[in-house]
């Protein structure tokens, strides 16, 4: 299990390849990457704030929960902070399991929990100002299915 909270960009392809290569015995690897949307051309950049210490702990505990619930062989979470431009990867998760159903479910679980239980806050820097992204009720409701 690897958890990384970093300002630096990461290479999604290289991360996925390394993760798959290390997951010995796995029959399935699922990965998801979140990218900075341009919001119909309004967005110039995204500023992501986090809580050093708590963020890493929260991510580790969410990933640990996924590993035990779906008997994953491995899990990866990378999440960036700082200023990101349109099109850049904000984060990625990857899960490895014996069969695909567990890897898919665990990746969705990770994403649902990352959205509203990992201490990150996004601010949209727009052409005409800046706005903190509001948490959505749908994101909070998504946790109920787990």
């Amino acid at each position: 299990m690897r958890i990384a909270v970093q300002a630096a960009p990461f290479d999604q392809g290289a991360e996925l390849q390394a993760f798959s290569a290390a997951a010995s015995g796995a029959g399935a690897v699922v990965s998801f990457s979140g990218l900075v949307r341009d919001e119909a051309g309004r967005l110039s950049a995204l500023e992501i704030e986090y809580y050093p210490g708590m963020t890493e702990k929260a991510l580790a505990s969410i990933a640990q929960e996924a590993v035990s619930r779906w008997s994953l062989l491995d899990a990866l979470v990378i999440h960036r902070h700082g200023r990101l431009l349109v099109g850049e990867a904000i984060m990625m998760v990857a899960t490895a399991s014996t069969h695909r159903a567990d890897a898919f479910s665990a990746a969705e679980f990770l994403m649902d929990y990352l959205k509203s239980r990992a201490p990150f806050w996004k601010k949209e820097l727009l052409a005409d100002g800046a706005d903190w992204v509001r948490a959505k009720d749908t994101d909070e409701n998504a946790l109920k299915r787990w």
């Binding site: 979140g34 809580y51 210490g53 708590m54 702990k57 999440h79 904000i90 984060m91 994403m111 990352l114 959205k115 509203s116 239980r117 990992a118 201490p119 990150f120 806050w121 996004k122 903190w132 992204v133 509001r134 948490a135 909070e140």
Partner: peptide
């Protein structure tokens, strides 16, 4: 102390309290 808590949580022995809006990760 870096765990999500309720507003009526006790402060005895606590080192750190953080206030923030609902999180928007992912």
């Amino acid at each position: 102390d870096q765990e999500l808590s309720a507003f009526d949580a006790p402060l005895q022995g606590v080192r750190e309290v953080a206030f923030f809006p609902p999180m928007t990760g992912g």
